[in-house]
Nucleic acid binder design. Structure first.
Lengths: 200, 200
DNA sequence: ACTTTTGTTGACCATTTGGTTAAATTATAT
DNA sequence: ATATAATTTAACCAAATGGTCAACAAAAGT
């Protein structure tokens, strides 16, 4: 933490605070304290709170989105793609618990940010997936499903248990460790469900 | 809007603002303006911002939770229960788009609130469901599934498309109306998937 | 009629907050 | 060495914010 450049230290501290408190709840002073620097330095590197937030937010999206993109546009059989997705995405999110709630929440509060940021990250790869699925359906290798629903189902079942973790943890009376196991189990379970829903 | 009691007007205005901006982002002045009253009146009826927020939050949970509870603990065959859930819950949430993101988000930021509020609302009915499913599995009428996963799957696929609406709307390039149709379609689709995953 | 309680307001206050500035310190180049 | 540029800080500021208070108005008891 010591030899890191100030700019990085700020970004890390800001990420923590913003993800925990959100754009409005975050305090510049808290970020400065957490980064171990003077508040004025924040403004020296990132001109305003908004600028800093946007940087953090873009970084968060850039951390989440390419993984979806990379997996769904990789050149492997579709069933493998699905298994790979649930496996890697649930793993990744387990280690970044705050991320999805942060992104989705800020997206709700500031919808116009999406067009620019999110589409650029994901956009194109979705078309590819759509075409792939169409071809497979034509060849009779899978059911002629609506890819939008399949994708939403898969993302829902992978992401929601992370977003609603505190709720579900309490609801099912699970310890932190038990919840991790619960998530681990879902990797295969979700993939199986999705595959079952599209295989002929 | 005119003949409503001041207290109600405040609560409605506060609900709007809190759901849109969150606890931190909400401004007492904005709530007062939206309610068409003086800011001091807010403090006359609800002593502090925190108090007001908690009232709004509890009301939101009380709006969401009993519906889950009512459906899953009703005395109808399990498959009907599932169809009823997806149908009614997606309908309800379509008319209260902000609700789930609001509840889940605040729950993430303030986890200790859950124990008290959420468990009281949901808690018991979950045990009933668990027992029901166990019995059905013993009788061989459904697979011996893990009810926790089934429930999470069902809630995930119903709730997530509401929470991530702005994201998915952009991603799939859908108009407001198209998105409503998309959600409408999901009612049956989700129920079918859940039922398929547990039927023998 | 009038007293008391309840509801409502405008003006005000202390604190917090994002942001600035001028000066000091450190690094870099000449 | 020294001038120049980059980094860091303490002190400060204006605006915003949650909250209060004294006074006024309306309702409700009596």
């Amino acid at each position: 933490m010591e030899d890191k450049t100030t700019e990085i230290k700020i970004l890390e501290a800001a990420t923590e605070v913003f993800q925990e408190k959100g754009m409005y709840g975050a305090r510049m002073q808290e970020i400065a304290d957490k980064a171990g620097i003077n508040k004025a330095l924040l403004h020296y590197y990132y001109r305003s709170k908004e600028k800093l937030f946007e940087t953090v937010f873009r970084a968060a999206v850039s951390l989440m989105a390419p993984r979806i993109k990379g997996i769904i546009s990789s050149d492997v059989p579709i069933f493998d793609k699905i298994r790979k997705f649930t496996d890697e995405y649930i793993s990744f999110l387990s280690n970044h618990t705050y991320l999805p709630a942060f992104v989705i929440n800020e997206l709700n509060k500031n919808p116009q940010l999406i067009q620019e940021i999110f589409l650029k990250e994901i956009g194109s790869s979705f078309q590819i997936l759509r075409d792939d699925v169409q071809k497979l359906a034509d060849k009779g290798e899978i059911k002629p499903v609506d890819i939008e629903h399949v994708l939403v189902n898969m993302i829902s079942m992978s992401l929601f248990p992370i977003i609603a973790k505190p709720l579900l943890k309490t609801m099912f009376n699970k310890s932190e460790k038990d919840y991790q196991i619960f998530l681990e189990t879902r990797k295969k379970l979700v993939a199986d469900m999705i595959i079952d829903s599209i295989k002929v």
